[in-house]
Structure formats: structure tokens, C-alpha cells
Design a protein around this nucleic acid. Structure first.
Length: 423
DNA sequence: TCTGGGGTCCTAGGACCC
DNA sequence: TCTGGGGTCCTAGGACCC
């Protein structure tokens, strides 16, 4: 059977989320900022038209923002996560097989609708999502994932398509590839685009005419798969079940630079606990824990120092208390006084399912107790949708916390500011 | 001019994505 | 003053073994 996939993605997702609960923002330029209000990570169409680029530092466009009355928001991931769930729920009504690809993108298997009017069906999907969630989406339909991506991009770009494009006929596919620039292909980043242009390959169509072994030699098996996908041969399966993560990382720049160990310690402990929660959510444990610290690389006059330390845990764990304990040991081994620290982070690797951990006969940790405690912590945090229970090392200090002065309310989730400390 | 060879495992680094 | 934070996969090359 011929396969047909749709790629559905939310238009300017974070900006659209801000709009859903504040309709007066419709038609107004909006940007959403990264953590610490650092740079632009989402823009409404109006903001794009003002020439605001993705990833631009906020301070560099502050004048423009004021002059043009651009609404700037700190990122509100609780809100975006919740809105994402609503969109995905809605999409899953239209086909039994979907792959959640990212917070704002989803592949839908439409092979069963081969004989239907796919254009009409795609429009029905688009209209329903808008009606039920308030989020505008675009759909590209084609025989492979890479082609669906191409279709989606054109669906957004073309006035005629207006957000929905079905690429089924070979001549339509060919035309779409001819107007797609090489750097706009999913899987071709800056390096490969430069390389391919050097070899006179400027469009997706020209890429499909390239030699298989030449592509594999220079772009690895990944490039070869992409080549075949663009020719219509499916190489990337729909992944309906999200595989457990193989690495988990929590890191953030501090609101202001820190020199004192104590505050870096609190921040790092907090990141370790966040990692623990992510681990438990996917019912895994980790055996390797890495802590890193960084000074501000943009600040040339500051003395620079970056370092990291990895610790092999005696027994794989997902307990906050243990993760914090080892993160602290690692941090102490790399912290050096006299530097202006800007960022630290915790990375967990060698991740395995909770029920496959190897116990150690000399283990002194009461794992049953830890497990029960974590269950309670998670259920409380789940109910109040934030970290209301913490290990004392995480501290009460706020000096290292993120700057987020422009955050919208968490419209869809409740907020309760209760802090309970345990040791 | 010649310097064994083949297999496996691990890691660092590079490419990409949203 | 102010410059994000997560992830994925693949390959080359070194270490080590027989």
C-alpha cells in the first residue's frame, strides 16, 4: 500500500499560545524570549516582517521592540506544554497512527485515506485544531517524511496553499523540489548546504539527482536516507511510541553571574533534582552523572573557565537525594574560586529501565525508602505542577534564578506557592 | 624498500533537529 | 548591563586483544 504522511505543525507556536488567552494580541507583533529573556525563540508573522530574526539577542532589538510596540514574552513552558497536549489530542482524532515529533509538530499516517479527497481532509484537520484549541496549524501531505516536510514548508509559504498542501502526483513533487532551496531541506544544515552549493547543488531537485555513493561518502548514511526519502522512497518510519531518552540534561544560565560556591551549589542541586524527575517520568535510572560549569564566554574581559566532571554511580539511581549528593561531589571537584560563573548543568547518561538495575551487595542506600519518598514528591509536584517539595541543598535563595520579567500567567494550570523542605 | 592484520569497543567530535 | 536549552545519530580514530 502506498504510504501517505502528513506533517502538521503549529504556526509560530509559542507566539500563538500567548495569543489564545489574550486575543487583543491578534494582529500585533509578538516575540517570545529564551530563558533569562536572552534571545528571540519565537516570532509572530508581524514580528518577522519587522525583520526580527530567530535567535537574535533581545538587548540588540530592544529599541525596535519599543518603537514598534512589539509584545515580548518570557517563555512559559508550562503553558506551551499544556497547549501542545491539547493540539496532539485533537490530531489523534483523525488517525490512529501519529508520531509526536516535537512540542509543535506531529506526523500523521494518512495511508488509509488514500482514496479520499486528501486536500479536504487536511483542511478539516486544520480547521478543527483551530476551533478546538485556538492554535493555527499548517499541513503538508506526501509519501515520505522528508517530502511531507517539503510540502509543509510550501504550504506555509504559498498564498494559494494557505496552510495546506498535498503532494501526491510525481509532477507536483518534482515542481515542489525544484522550488525548494537546498538549505530549506529538513536535515541539511549550514555545513551541508555550503558543501552542496560548492558542488553546484542548489535545490532539492538537484540534490535528488546526485549520486548515491557520493552522498553517502560526504554526508553519511543519514544523508543517503534523506536523498532516498526525497525521491519518494520511505526510509524513516513513523515512530508511534516515543523511545526513552538516552541522555537527560538540565542546565541554565543564571540570572546574574555568580562567584560564591553556595549559590552555584544550590542551582546545580536544583538541576540535578529536575533531571531526577525527568528520569522517573520515563521510569529509568542513570549510572553516569556529569556536572559542568561555565563562565560567560561573551564577556571577553572576564577570566574564562569551563570544566566538567563525570561520576560513575555505584548503583544506577533516579533518587533526587542521590543525584544531588553526587552532583555536589562533582561540582566541588571542579569549582574554583575567583571566577564569574554564568551557567552550570547536570547531564545523566547510561540510562536504563528502572527494573533492570544491577544491585550492589555492599549498597548502603535504603532504595525502597528513597523510592517511596520520590513517589510522594512527584505526586505533589504533579498536582501543583511545580517543584513545591525540595531537598534542602536546593536552597531558598533566588539570586541565581532565571530572569523572566515578561511571563504571561499560567492560564491552563493552577499555581500554589507552597514550599516544603526535606533532608 | 620494507615495518602484520583483523576484530571490537569506546570516545570525542561533528553534523543535524526543534 | 543583557547572547537558550534541550535532544538525536553517525563516524573516525585510538586502545586493546589475539
Amino acid at each position: 500500500m502506498t504510504t501517505l504522511l502528513a506533517l502538521c505543525d503549529c504556526n509560530n507556536f509559542y507566539a500563538s499560545c500567548e495569543r489564545v488567552f489574550n486575543p487583543s494580541l491578534n494582529g500585533q507583533p509578538i516575540v517570545v524570549l529564551s530563558n533569562n529573556d536572552g534571545c528571540v525563540i519565537a516570532r509572530s508573522n508581524e514580528a518577522k516582517l519587522l525583520g526580527i530574526d530567530m535567535g537574535e539577542p533581545f538587548f540588540a532589538i530592544r529599541d525596535l521592540v519599543e518603537a514598534k510596540k512589539v509584545h515580548a514574552f518570557s517563555s512559559n513552558y508550562t503553558l506551551y506544554g499544556d497547549m501542545s497536549n491539547r493540539v496532539m489530542q485533537t490530531l489523534s482524532q483523525f488517525t490512529p497512527s501519529i508520531e509526536l515529533y516535537s512540542i509543535d509538530e506531529c506526523f500523521l499516517d494518512l495511508s488509509n485515506f488514500y482514496n479520499k479527497d486528501l486536500n479536504a481532509y487536511a483542511w478539516e484537520i486544520k480547521n478543527t485544531v483551530l476551533r478546538w484549541t485556538g492554535i493555527p496549524v499548517s499541513l503538508g501531505v506526501a509519501p515520505t517524511k522528508a517530502l511531507a516536510k517539503v510540502a509543509n514548508k510550501l504550504a506555509k509559504k504559498s498564498k494559494k496553499a494557505n496552510g495546506v498542501l498535498v503532494l501526491q502526483e510525481p509532477e507536483h513533487i518534482r515542481k515542489a523540489l525544484e522550488v525548494t532551496k537546498i538549505e530549506d531541506i529538513w536535515g541539511i544544515g549550514g555545513q551541508y548546504a555550503k558543501f552542496l552549493k560548492k558542488h553546484q547543488i542548489h535545490t532539492a531537485y538537484e540534490f535528488t539527482q546526485a549520486n548515491d555513493s557520493w552522498v553517502q561518502k560526504h554526508m553519511s548514511i543519514v544523508g543517503l536516507r534523506l536523498l532516498k526519502e526525497l525521491r519518494g522512497e520511505s526510509c524513516l518510519e513513523l515512530e508511534e511510541v516515543m523511545p526513552p531518552k538516552k541522555g537527560i540534561c538540565t542546565s541554565r544560565g543564571y540570572g546574574v553571574k555568580q562567584t560564591e560556591f553556595k549559590y552555584i551549589q544550590e542551582a546545580t542541586a536544583t538541576y540535578a533534582a529536575k533531571c531526577g524527575r525527568k528520569l522517573r517520568k520515563q521510569k529509568s535510572c542513570a549510572r553516569f552523572l556529569t556536572v559542568f560549569v561555565e563562565t560567560n564566554r561573551f564577556c571577553e574581559k572576564d577570566k574564562q573557565y569551563n570544566n566538567s566532571r563525570t561520576i560513575v554511580l555505584p548503583v544506577a539511581t533516579n533518587s533526587d537525594m542521590e543525584l544531588i549528593k553526587y552532583a555536589d561531589i562533582a561540582l566541588k571537584s571542579i569549582y574554583k574560586p575567583g571566577y564569574q560563573y554564568k551557567k552550570s548543568g547536570v547531564i545523566l547518561t547510561e540510562i536504563l529501565p528502572e527494573n533492570q538495575i544491577q544491585f550492589d551487595l555492599l549498597d548502603t542506600v535504603d532504595r525502597v525508602k528513597h523510592h517511596k519518598l520520590m513517589e510522594v514528591v512527584d505526586s505533589l509536584s504533579g498536582r501543583f505542577s511545580r517543584d513545591i517539595v525540595k531537598v534542602a541543598t536546593q536552597g531558598y535563595n533566588k539570586s541565581w534564578h532565571l530572569r523572566c520579567e515578561r511571563k504571561s500567567p499560567c492560564y491552563t494550570t493552577s499555581l500554589n506557592d507552597i514550599i516544603i523542605a526535606y533532608v
